[in-house]
Each structure stands twice: as structure tokens, then as C-alpha cells.
Design a binder for these strands. Structure first.
Length: 444
RNA sequence: GCGGGGAUGGCCCAGCGGUACGGCGGCAGCCUGCUAAGCUGUUUCUCUAUGAGAGCGAGGGUUCGAAUCCCUCUCCCCGCGCCA
């Protein structure tokens, strides 16, 4: 949620940010109308309550001295009736006002490119050594900013869709039978590699000051609503029937909500948390996209970086999270680019977001594997997470970013490190201590 | 699932129909020739704010007045049962 006080004091900066995000600013107009009406009611109610409190004090005194209080009792009853109906009216107004408030997105960082469409995201940098099929060369050069290190291939690398079948690493058909599309059984060495990725990423983050946790995989509506903009997000979540519980779509939401309604000591910040969990997504709006293989599935493992910090430090930690993710992909040897996500594609919560996109040689494209956001105080305000300073309590800033989302990285590994015409692939060196093997082949 | 006990300000804890006690910690100041001790004030949220209102797990009810009594719910602790 945005800062209501700031909205009242400086409405123009919110009008400006909404326009840049291509949001309808009428929600702001509506807010101000309702807020004024609410304030008027509040003043009225406050005065009546003051009157009532004075009267009950008189009653208390008179009861002790034994004098008659029937007249005063009647007056308080009459006041209660008026207060009751005013409060009802006020609640209606404030509910509606708060509804508009939740529709207002975070402010925008100056760096964010103002435009719509993922194709207009701004390239920050490309790193790595990509294997590029000659027909994809132009796409690769354009999307990597013409500066990319790469080698040209005469044949298109084999898709992971075929490799998982040939190498007996995933059973999609039987998963389809028992659960439906976008479910899978992960098998054999691919299972080991997935576990290795999780262990590698959590070890990596633990060494850098992160507390590693496995969160609850289901959280209630209130926590979900605090951690996300739930109205636009609802359709991508699984709901547990008959319970006030949703399956998490990322551990970010559980970690953010973990400190809900808490006030921390200044010395407890920054709090770095690495969450490792299964993530569940309905992918409701994705019919027809990535229907084969395990690129886009209903459940995957993810290791997430999350930081609660003081407002003045949050851009430093944004850089830290970006650097962590980059080091992980560099060490795995996966070529990637970073883009600065443009204003029209940013979520409500983020003031700025970097996406990392890995190069997928068989698709001939960069595809999203990591998303890193600074939500500033937006998420913390919705969740009531503060810290104590000598000048009073302030909201913390929250940041989140992917370390590893396993299914997509498995695809990236298969497609980037295949050899022998896709009948084998190499396991990244940094994972070998965790897997105990360094290649996967059909013969295995 | 059954029975019992709980939830009070950042933390601990008292109050059990008359408007939240005390301690700890934090902050500010005073005192003091020691990195000690002591003293005073302060500590949440909201409102066009030298004032007022709200707040005792959540929501409802009774009452002139509810932390306190009644109802519903949530979570925690202790037993019993069931269980990977």
C-alpha cells in the first residue's frame, strides 16, 4: 500500500507515477472525494464521543455519591444512537476509500524506462558465452546489445522437450493422466540435479548472510493480500477448498508475511532470508504458451532471496541481490542478459524491477529466469512491518529476487550444455559436488 | 478430535464492571570528575492536533460505562486420542 499521508500532502507525484504506468488516474480522484467525506464524519463522531465520555464520567461520580443519574443515562443512549448511525456511514465510506487505495501502485524510480510492452524493456547488460544457431544470430545480437560473446552453430540445438523423453528424465504423460497438463514426474539424474541446484543456491546464500528457511506452503488470505496485490493476482493462485488457505506461488509472500505486524529493533536490520520452497501457479492466462516440456509448469522449486532493510539502504541491497543472482548464473555458465523492466510492465508493488533472462539456444530467445524487485515500503506498509528509531517507528523496505527457479534452469542446462546431438549434456562444475556425476547420457 | 490453561503497549506482568498498575528495555534530559549508580520525563495508532478519539488476540452482545460479564472465532501451551 502507498503512504496515505504522502498522497494527501503531494498528490501530484502519484498522478505522475500513475500516468507513467499507464494507469487510469480516476482512482486518485475517487480517493480524494471519499477521503474528505470520511474526515468530515470522523470529526463529527469524535466530538460526539467526547461528549459521551464526559457524561459517563459524571454518571460514575454521581453513582458514588448516590444521586440520580436517569437523565444522563438517557442522554448517553441518545448519543449512542447518533454515533452508531454515523459510524455505519463512516465505515461504508472508509471501506470504499481503502478499496481505491489498494488500486494505487507504488511510485516509480527515476531509472525506470517509461513505456509499455516487455519488448521495450531496457537492456542493462549481457554476460556469458552463448551458443547461437545461425538463424537466431540477428535476434541474439539485437537482444544482447550487439556486444555479446557467442559462438555460431550450424544446427539448432535439441529442445529439452525431446531430451527429457530420450534420456528418460521426465514423465509428462502419466502426470497428465493423474493430474492434468503442466504436471510432471521428474526422474533419475534430473531429480539429482534439481536437488543439487537447491543445495547449491542455499549454500551460496547462507555463506552471504542469509538465513535459510522453508516456509509454510499455504498461507491465509490476509497474509497473501498483504504481500501481494491480490485482486490482480488471485487468478494465478490455487485455493484450498473449505479453508482460508492459498498455495504460495513463491516463498517471497510467506517470507514477507512472516514479520507481519512486527516492529523490529534497528539492530535487527538488515534481515536477509533465503526461502526454499515448492511454488504453485495456475498459469490460467497462459493457454497455448510453452505447452510442451517443463518450461512452464504448475509447480516448481525456487530459492528466493528476500531482504528487510532500512529505507536508506534499499538500493544497495537491490544491487547486492542482483550481484548474487549474477554470480550464481556465471558460476553455472549460463549466458544471460539483464533488463530494466519498463513502467507499463512493472507490478503494483515494485518501484523498480530487473529481470534476468537466460539464453535458450533451442528456442533462440532470451527467456525470464529471475526477477528482482525493490518494493520499497509498499509491501511493508500493507503488512505493518516497522522498525524502531529514536524519531519513532518507520516502515522497513522489502526486496525480493530469485536465486534459482529450478525447472527453467534445468531446461537452460539441458539446452546450453548438450553435446552429441542432444543425446548427452554436461552438468555444471559447481553442481558436481552435489550430484556426484558430471554428465547425463542416454546410456546411463 | 476430546479435556484443561492462556493471549494486556517493544518485552515481562498486574487489574477481573467506573475508563490500563508496575518492572525491563529504548529515547530525551538532569545529576555525578570514573564505561557505575541515581532522578525526571517519554514510549502505539488516527484526526486541519497547546486539543480530542481509538487501542487489552479478532468479531459480535449486555450496560450510562467492558481488559473485566455473555456468545462466536483464531492462535499458543499442557494432557489424552489419532497419525507420516
Amino acid at each position: 500500500m502507498i503512504d496515505v499521508k504522502l498522497l494527501r500532502e503531494k498528490p501530484e507525484i502519484f498522478y505522475d507515477s500513475c500516468k507513467k504506468r499507464f494507469f487510469d488516474t480516476s482512482v486518485l480522484d475517487r480517493f480524494f472525494t471519499l477521503d474528505e467525506a470520511w474526515r468530515e464524519k470522523l470529526r463529527e463522531i469524535n466530538d460526539l464521543k467526547h461528549e459521551k465520555n464526559s457524561l459517563t464520567e459524571v454518571i460514575a461520580r454521581n453513582v458514588k455519591s448516590g444521586s440520580d443519574v436517569e437523565k444522563e443515562k438517557g442522554m448517553v443512549k441518545a448519543l449512542n444512537d447518533r454515533i452508531g448511525s454515523l459510524e455505519e456511514a463512516q465505515k461504508k465510506i472508509s471501506d470504499e476509500r481503502d478499496g481505491t487505495l489498494r488500486l494505487i501502485p507504488n511510485l516509480l524510480h527515476d531509472d525506470v524506462p517509461v513505456c509499455r510492452g516487455d519488448e521495450n524493456n531496457q537492456l542493462v547488460r549481457y554476460t556469458g558465452h552463448a551458443r547461437v544457431f545461425r538463424d537466431d544470430r540477428d535476434t541474439f545480437l539485437r537482444d544482447s546489445g550487439n556486444s555479446g560473446d557467442y559462438e555460431l552453430l550450424d544446427e539448432r540445438p535439441v529442445s529439452h522437450v525431446d531430451m527429457i523423453k530420450d534420456l528418460d528424465l521426465v514423465d509428462l504423460d502419466r502426470a497428465g493422466k493423474i493430474s492434468g497438463a503442466r504436471f510432471f514426474f521428474i526422474k533419475n539424474r534430473l531429480f539429482k540435479i534439481e536437488q543439487a541446484l537447491i543445495n547449491y543456491a542455499t549454500d551460496f546464500l547462507a555463506e552471504r548472510g542469509f538465513t535459510v528457511i522453508e516456509p509454510p506452503l499455504m498461507i491465509n488470505y490476509e497474509s497473501m493480500a498483504g504481500a501481494t496485490d491480490i485482486e490482480t493476482f488471485k487468478d494465478s493462485l490455487y485455493k484450498i477448498e473449505g479453508e482460508d488457505l492459498y498455495l504460495i506461488s513463491t516463498s517471497e509472500h510467506a517470507i514477507a508475511a512472516m514479520l507481519k505486524d512486527e516492529t523490529l529493533e534497528e539492530g535487527e536490520l538488515p534481515e536477509r532470508v533465503a526461502g526454499a520452497s515448492q511454488c504453485f501457479r495456475r498459469e490460467a492466462g497462459a493457454h497455448g504458451k510453452d505447452t510442451k516440456g517443463i518450461f512452464r509448469v504448475h509447480q516448481f522449486n525456487k530459492v528466493e532471496q528476500f531482504i528487510f532493510c532500512k529505507p536508506e539502504d534499499s538500493w544497495d541491497y537491490f544491487a547486492e541481490i542482483v550481484a548474487n543472482s549474477e554470480k550464481i548464473y556465471q558460476s553455472l555458465g549460463i549466458p544471460y542478459r539483464i533488463v530494466n523492466v519498463c513502467s507499463g510492465e512493472l507490478g503494483y508493488l515494485a518501484e523498480k524491477k530487473y529481470d534476468m533472462e537466460a539464453w535458450f539456444p533451442s528456442q533462440g530467445k532470451f527467456r525470464e529466469i529471475v526477477s528482482i524487485s525493490n518494493d520499497t515500503d509498499y509491501q511493508a506498509r500493507s503488512l505493518g512491518i516497522k522498525y524502531r528509531t529514536k524519531d519513532g517507528n518507520r516502515y522497513v523496505h522489502t526486496l525480493n529476487g530469485t536465486a534459482i527457479a529450478t525447472k527453467r534452469i534445468l531446461v537452460a542446462i539441458m539446452e546450453n550444455f548438450q553435446y552429441d546431438g542432444g543425446r548427452s549434456f554436461k552438468v555444471p562444475d559447481v553442481l558436481v559436488p552435489y550430484t556426484g556425476f558430471d554428465t547425463v547420457s542416454r546410456e546411463e
